[in-house]
Design a protein around this nucleic acid. Structure first.
Lengths: 188, 188, 188, 188
DNA sequence: CATGAATGAGCGTTCATTCAT
DNA sequence: GATGAATGAACGCTCATTCAT
């Protein structure tokens, strides 16, 4: 994925894409994204071959960023529960801190434009979370489930929790806790 | 009264809509839906004022059908766990039996075309499920959560479970069980 | 032009046509006309083969009615000026009394749907007016002009006068007089 | 600045619009206008937001052109009659020289798409003609009439005269004269 | 390489006319 | 004959992508 061109413009386009998708959903127009990035509409296509490519890259980047935020300062010596809570809490915090990113990622996740390859690639970034999850469920009631299933369950629980935290900021902490409790009870 | 508005055609259009949305997603074209229904493209608009109206009605009908399937032959005298399992199992079964309906409903659920009014109306149909959930969580660890949150958690867990049942038919029963266990553990 | 069908419905359609064209202009829809006539949309086509036919007949009837109103109680023994004024005054009065008819006729007159044949036929009805005009211009400054030209000049002057009478009812009489003076001065 | 908006293309579209409206009337299709201008159908909308905007601009431009042609080389020191005749003659000449423009303008004038604002704006261009008319009618029999009425009378007389000049080219000059005589007699 | 005008396939919706009831 | 649903060509406008400048 050679990038001979201005990294600045490239990332301007990606963050513009995030904002526009967060606002307009998947109907986001390439021209609107370019405008938001302060770039000519045609230039978008020198950085991204097609709209689909932009969306796939955006998905990947947002997913990676989310995972990285979640795994930040993981207390590796603490109990496994505390570690998982740290991940969960960081994750939820990321969503609240940058709601556009979260909204854009949610939209992209359901988009038919995102290819299976992209989805597969994104799993590399979330592998750290998956590993932790793996440890948590060991010997627990979910020991028979595939990791894929568990990851999806956790994701969907996370999505739901974020929605409520975003919708109802006053109870954000409460929902964060409740979501985590639900996850933990599933596992243990 | 000339040719009366045909219920047959109306439902042909709705089931064509289901199939086309399941296949093409929200980009489904009105012309494709009409063609699939064996009806002239203009005729779609005799039955549904706009595409948006069609999509909203479809959402409502599919949601109602899903809820009704879930609540079918509820063993009201059995234990609450058995009742919830019956609902869960019927629900998952409906999704597998008619995967197009499930896919279309999933697409419509994330569509920006579905109005808040339609979403509100759909809750009437799922109220029975929500009530049961209410009973299950009583005195459990989720007693502090709002019903809205719990319903969303259950829904997202259900979606995930269905995805895996559909993806991997050999393990469908296993995933159905695992999903239910997860739900039950959240509640109790 | 056999009319085996209900004259009542036929004329209901024509007067509905008048009203709808007066309101909506040439964009008037056949369905709207039928609705206004209290008749099924398909029935319009048992009375008039096509929309164009309806419009042409309507044009003819309105023109005839206008001419007949103009020529009503012509004071054949009065001076030629008084005779012409009687025609002019009746004509203007007709327009004010039934502004929908006037408006519809004005719209139809500029429509490309009205065939040359229809326009030719309409001249039969206005022949009486033309004859009077012929007498008026005899030996006057317009003696060299073709009747067609004179008739058109009078028509356009009449249209303009009507517009102002309709627009500004308080000065209706004044404009009626001014229009007539203009016409008379052209001729004498 | 890439390809700049081309004035050439813009005016190609306007003159294509003139031709197509002259031929097909107000039913002129945007695609036909674009084709006639040698431009892609979508390009029309880079130059004119909507069909209505195009029509309004076209109306304004044609009206301005007509007025400017009429007022060209006005013999300000000649008698008022000669001045008015110069205007009249130029006006009629313009219509004959470019019959498409005249036809298109006539169609647009009766179109419901032309807004009151556009009509008001067009009056600025014809103000010069109106002023001359004002001088002509001073102390004449039309001294009591509003300018609006007089202008409309003159316009309708002009339209009629043009029609006959166009229809019957051999007698064009004769009709031009007759029309002017009629106008002059109205005023003096 | 940046720009933004040019392109044209594509889409939702309308409406005169036909035809089953 | 009356009804109004069925038909499908037609239209204005959009927007991802291309390409002249």
């Amino acid at each position: 994925m050679a990038r001979p061109l201005s990294d600045e413009k490239r990332s301007a386009l990606m963050s513009a894409g995030t904002r526009v998708i967060a606002t307009q959903g998947l109907a986001a127009q390439t021209a609107a994204i370019a405008r938001e990035a302060g770039v000519a509409s045609g230039s978008l296509f020198t950085y991204f071959e097609t709209k689909k490519v932009l969306f796939n890259e955006l998905y990947l980047v947002l997913k990676a960023e989310m995972a990285s935020a979640a795994l930040k300062s993981l207390p590796r010596n603490a109990s496994i529960r505390k570690q998982l809570f740290s991940v969960w809490s960081n994750w939820m915090h990321w969503a609240i801190t940058d709601p556009d990113k979260r909204r854009a990622l949610a939209q992209l996740s359901v988009s038919e434009e995102i290819t299976p390859e992209t989805r597969a690639a994104s799993r590399k970034h979330t592998a750290g979370i998956a590993e932790l999850l793996e440890q948590c469920r060991a010997a627990g009631p979910m020991r028979e489930a595939s990791m894929g299933f568990l990851v999806s369950v956790m994701n969907s629980l996370a999505e739901t929790t974020m929605d409520f935290m975003l919708q109802d900021p006053k109870n954000a902490e409460k929902h964060c806790q409740l979501g985590f409790e639900a996850l933990w009870r599933i596992l243990k």
